[in-house]
Structure formats: C-alpha cells, structure tokens
Design a protein around this nucleic acid. Sequence first.
DNA 1: CCCCGTTAGTTCAATTTTTCACAAATTGCG
DNA 2: CGCAATTTGTGAAAAATTGAACTAACGGGG
Lengths: 227, 227
Amino acid sequence: MKVEKISELTTNRLSVYLRCLNELAATGVKTTSSDDMAKRFHLNSAQIRKDLAYFGEFGVRGVGYYVETLREQLIKILGLNNEHRVCIIGSGRLGTALADYYEYTQSNFSVVTLFDTDKAKIGQKIGNIKINDIEKFAEVVEKERIDVAVIAVPAQFAQGVLDLIMKAGIKAVMNFAPIALKAIDEVKLKSVDLTISLESLSYFLAQPVGDNGKIVKPNGKTRRIKK
Amino acid sequence: MKVEKISELTTNRLSVYLRCLNELAATGVKTTSSDDMAKRFHLNSAQIRKDLAYFGEFGVRGVGYYVETLREQLIKILGLNNEHRVCIIGSGRLGTALADYYEYTQSNFSVVTLFDTDKAKIGQKIGNIKINDIEKFAEVVEKERIDVAVIAVPAQFAQGVLDLIMKAGIKAVMNFAPIALKAIDEVKLKSVDLTISLESLSYFLAQPVGDNGKIVKPNGKTRRIKK
DNA sequence: CCCCGTTAGTTCAATTTTTCACAAATTGCG
DNA sequence: CGCAATTTGTGAAAAATTGAACTAACGGGG
C-alpha cells in the first residue's frame, strides 16, 4: 500500500481531463491516449499519465485509455457520482448570478438555497431557489442536508460567515469575497478572487511590450524615505 | 541591470499585499514590517520580502515599510494607476453579473460595454452599460479604447470569441468559459473556471475523513478492460 | 558617537512540481 | 508465434517555488 499526498494542482487537472473525455465521448471517440489528448487539448502527455497513475492503472499499454472507462473512473475519484447540495450565502449580484450559473450548468451540484440578512429579500425566490434567513442557517443546513457552502458576501462579513458555516459542520467552502479567510484544518476552503485575477491582467499590461513577463529591475537604491 | 522573469504566483501575491496595505492604511497604521504583515494576514514574511525585492528596495532596514509609500509602489507596479477599459462578451447570466460586480467594485477598471449576438438584447442596457452587437466588435473596441476583454459565453463559442478579441488587438483577456483556450504569446489569457473549483471541493469531500489530502493507492492492477 | 536591537534584502537549502526518458506491457500483422 | 509499433507507468532529472538563515543597514538610547 502506497500512501501519497495528492496536490491540488493534480486534482484540478483531473477535472480538466474529465471535461476533455466528456467532449471526446460526445463526439463518439471510443479510445484515446495521453498523447492524443495532449495534442487535442494543449496538455502535456507525461503529466496526464502521471496524474492518472496516482489513482490506479487505467490505461492499457500499447493501446491507451478507453474513453468511457476512464470517464467513469474520474467521476468516481472526483466524487461526482454523489450529489452535492449547495447553499449560497449572500443574495446580492454575485450570489444570485452564481445561483443561476450553477443551477443552469448541468452537474451533480444543486443549489438548494440562498441566505441573506436583509428582511426584504428573505422569502423571495431567485428562479426556483428560495432566500432564507441567515439566522436559521444551522437549522436549514441540517434539514436540507447541505454539504457545500458558497460565500458571496462583502469582504468584511466573510470571516463571520465562514465561522457560521464551520459551526454548522459543513466541510467544503468556496469563497468569492476578496479577502483571505482562516479555516480550520478539517474544512476545505477554496477561494476565487475576481479582483486579483483582473489585477494580474493589469500587471501584464503595465509591462513593456514584448518582454513576455520579464522585468527590468532598477539596480541600486530606490528612493529613501525621510520619516 | 538585472532582468528576471516574475512568476504569476508572485504578481498575484502583490495584489494580496496591496489589499493588506489598503486595510492597514484604512485603520490608520503608518508603518509595518514583513513580519507584522505576515502575522496579521497569515502570510510568510520571507516571501513578502522576496516578492517585493524583485521590484526594488521599498523598505528601510531596522524599521520596515511605510504603508503609504509601499501602497503607491504596488499600485504602480500592478499598473493600477492607469484606468483600464473593459468589455464583456456574452450578456447572459454570468456576463451581466460580472458587469455589475466589476462596476460596483470600486477600482480602476470600468466596464465600458457588453457584447452579444442576440438581436433582442442588442441596444438594451444593464445598469448603465449598453449591449452592443458583436458584429461591431472591432469598431467599438477601437472607438471606446477597450484594453481588457472578459469572455462570458458558452464554452463552444469561447475560442471563436478569443480569436476575435486577439484580432482586435486586445492583449489582456479573462475567460470564464469552462474550456481551455489557445492564445498567441503576446496575449495574456487568464481563466477562472467555476466548475473546476467546485469539483475540487467534491474531490475533497469524497476522500475518507481526516486524512487531509492523502489517498490510499491500491497496489497492483486495477481492472483490465476487455476490448 | 557608539552599541544594541530590529528588520530588509539576499543567498542558500529544501520542497514541490514538471518534464524527460525508458523499461514493461500490449496489440496487430506477417 | 514472434517481431514491430505503440503507449503506459514510473524513476530520475530538471525546473520552479518556497522557506530558512545570514548579512548589511538603520534608528534609538546611553
């Protein structure tokens, strides 16, 4: 028995591979290979093989991978054979858009409810999804068997919301608030920061053209500040 | 003159540092240090110093960093002193939500216009932002001096849209379509994949509790598939 | 004015991640 | 059946990233 730590980079790529396989399956391709996939989807074949090999031997040497079989394996590895019940905290612009997006996107995630503090919003519906009172959070989470929470509240409230989520026993949290949150070890916290992403584009645009990421560092002291 | 390649991990952290400094400035803190920041915001002090040192000497030994000065430097490095004019392609749920989000979030990015193919939508407004005909893309991009594009169309159209964007001379693109796109070297493409993010949470939930990312790999053959 | 404590900037070591390259396994064909 | 053509799975090398340790610089107090 070999026990290894799988990096998040690897598991993220598994999602990518699954998506590729879905596409292949949809177009009727029955078998593929690491090389074939790499060429089609701009990936690295060695990396594909290595990522998959962490979880078992899914291929056949000299042949490659059977699309349908590998698809099933990845679905199992990623836990996508179980339904996940999601709640979104914050029914502002972003929260409601995410609710729509995830509902619309066909998957094994269903958005069960939104939460808000605003009495005017509570009881309303976004599509088919009801907005609940955040004060009833723990209660609703239990009743609806929610296992994934999405944070879509302003930054200053995000840590408080996360604490509430952890207290309710939810182990998987996705955060869209632009702030670094602190979660306990048993809870998986994943953050998407739409601001940082844009700012990194800004950095790129600020660089002299054509140097593709290289910068010229001024040598010697930059200004020294008088107190 | 030292010329170095700055990794994207580093520039992303610069955004984080800037956010931290903003917070410090807002609460009236005048000076800080790598150690102080590390403690406050759960960062690594050596990494802060190293990241900053790529771009110059901003600190004073024995003292630390002057919050306001460092803030200004980071803004300059990230190119956040220039206004960026953004267009969003796709005025569906996600596109309009992003338009709202980025408009609402106070920053140097302004969303100038949305684009769509749907004749029924063209001419309408989302808040103050007009929906333009994608057929007039190049024209509008030039007239409005747009330098950042956001892709918020279904996956199957995303590569076509990216090609259009590149042809119009835009060098910074943010992609929300769940597909791997191919951009030419001079164009910076950044992708946010809301599906992959969720699936990585699913993976975590699928692991036996408490082993915190470790998996047990079955040794020996997994099943061998008959053709 | 010098010494002590502090902290930035930098070098070096450790870790992680990616890539290479090759042995082992499998199929198809003569 | 055996050989050639593939293609996996993997061990080892290379590259990238992080973290720790050290050196140089600065300010305050005696």
